[in-house]
Design a protein around this nucleic acid. Structure first.
Lengths: 148, 148
DNA sequence: TATTGTTATACTCTATAACTATA
DNA sequence: TATAGTTATAGAGTATAACAATA
């Protein structure tokens, strides 16, 4: 792709610049999410739990799968969130071993508030794109997400 | 921007889809980086320390700034990495309070290995883009990064 | 007085291992 | 036997507060 006498940057530079931009973006996003979580005395992981349960109630094991964490970690996470009144455990009616987790009203409210604050906090970044640009980036990110 | 009788999605959907894609991408990237770090018995933060010091040696306080962490956290981080032989503290010659941190040979090698492994691990995602698409995404991400 | 860094402390996150109960 | 969860334990990451040394 690069001819030997290319005046431009050497082969592979585009890839590494893309990776660099993606990694740096991910750190910025993580920092924004962590800050918003901390303002509500939540960890980033706790905020993720709220976001996951907002979309779909599920078993402890589902949370472990979605978050990529060990079941023992989920127990602790759910313990603390339950103690705060953000979610509730209920035994699974059809499997005596299973425990389902669902947000309480307070948890739903906090999840929605958090989501709105995230959108607000990212606005300075996302609003630098025109609408077609935003759509384009979304499509290309989705394509990459689908390929892993 | 959306006319009242628009047949398409309501206003704001593009923004929220962009945010959703960016947040999910950031979780995927974080997971990839954490996994690679763990394979070398490093935390994600430790890997970031190596990456930062690979580009620029600096004071403890610089690390705190770059990572957005408290100085006391940096002390612990640097303690553990130094114990592993990945970096070295040296007193700052011109400021008796300051401590500079630099990678050892072993640290440099691990930083370079890690960087290569990250590129490799993200290849399935990044290679779904054509070269012009990759350049486009990079430019738009950089624009967003510059705006925060 | 302000800044740089360390230490003590406390809490969360995380995984591993051992356990209970159910399938 | 295998699976779902919990608990005990241990180590890392993190911030706050108190401190020492230097500016």
């Amino acid at each position: 792709m690069d001819s030997p006498d290319s005046l431009g940057p050497p082969a592979g530079v585009d890839q590494s610049e893309l990776i660099d931009a993606m990694v740096r973006t991910s750190f910025v996003i993580t920092a924004v999410l962590s800050k918003i979580a901390a303002e509500h005395e939540l960890s980033l992981t706790q905020l993720r739990v709220l976001a996951i349960l907002r979309d779909r109630q599920g078993a402890m094991s589902d949370l472990a799968t979605h978050l990529g964490l060990d079941k023992s970690t989920i127990s602790g996470l759910v313990d603390r969130a339950e103690k705060r009144g953000l979610l509730q455990r209920t035994p699974n009616p059809s499997d005596g071993r299973g425990v389902d987790v669902a947000l309480t009203e307070e948890g739903i409210e906090l999840a929605e508030l958090g989501g709105a604050e995230v959108a607000q906090a990212l606005l300075p970044m996302t609003s630098t794109l025109t609408l077609p640009e935003a759509r384009r980036v979304t499509i290309l990110l989705e394509r990459m997400l689908g390929a892993r």
